[in-house]
């Protein structure tokens, strides 16, 4: 959590490997393995996933083609057999229904003509299909109405287990009404200034971020 401009999205994108940023100092490690120098694809193959704050629209490529290419890439990279098209379609359709997305959307271009909420749900759909070890959800809750928020929260909660980790980037408390966090970290000016558990989130909701500046 953190105020606008604190560096939450930048951190998420740097971890995912966006090339616009240059790392001067520090390292990124996933399950003890250093990934600082790896390409975005390699980080994804190791189990990293980023749900974008503003998912891009790609009209000429269908959601199905995109998703299948992602799933197949993961299978190849991890030495697993590629899933058949039939099984893939079944899994994709059921995940779509679970998230309140019309399965027909698979035929449309990636995020083409989607509302903000649908784009966010499409990100979660991709997460469910790729089964990552560490998912960073960058402001997934912004732009969602009450029902969509509950659907996404339920999807994330059901996905979360002892073998994976989910990092929710948000500056609102309301998502946490539906998902109980194990840790809460607060970023301000690019640094983690406070860590705690759920009660820290409640305190922030009450007092805002200003009080954190006090020594």
């Amino acid at each position: 959590m953190g105020p606008n401009g604190s560096g939450k999205s930048t951190l998420a994108n740097v971890i995912a490997g966006k090339e616009d940023y240059q790392i001067d100092q520090g390292r990124i490690a996933l399950e003890g393995q250093e990934i600082t120098a790896l390409s975005p694809e390699e980080r994804a193959h190791r189990g990293l996933f980023l749900a974008f704050q503003y998912p891009i629209e790609i009209p000429g490529v269908s959601n199905m083609e995109f998703l299948k290419a992602a799933v197949d890439s993961h299978a190849r990279a991890t030495g697993k057999p590629e899933i058949s098209t039939v099984d893939f379609m079944k899994t994709a359709r059921s995940a779509a229904e679970q998230l309140g997305l019309n399965p027909e959307f698979l035929k449309r271009g990636v995020n083409e003509g989607f509302s903000g909420g649908e784009k966010k749900r499409n990100e979660i759909l991709q997460m469910l299909m790729l089964n990552p070890k560490v998912s960073i959800l960058d402001e997934t809750d912004s732009g969602l109405d009450i029902d969509a928020l509950r659907t996404v929260a339920n999807g994330v909660s059901a996905f979360s287990n002892e073998t994976n980790a989910v990092v929710l980037v948000t500056h609102y408390q309301r998502l946490l009404d539906h998902i109980e966090p194990d840790f809460v970290h607060v970023i301000a000016n690019g640094t983690i200034v406070r860590s705690g558990d759920r009660s820290l989130a409640l305190e922030l909701e009450e007092k805002g971020y200003g009080w954190l500046e006090d020594p």
Binding site: E19, S39, E41, A44, I58, G60, V61, A69, S73, A77
Partner: peptide, 23 residues
């Protein structure tokens, strides 16, 4: 980047995007 972040290698990503552009 969107493609790469999903594990799709850069070369394959370029190919899919170029074809999509014409499609």
């Amino acid at each position: 980047f969107y493609f790469q972040s999903r594990g799709i290698e850069e070369e394959e990503a370029r190919s899919i995007l170029m074809k999509g552009f014409l499609k």
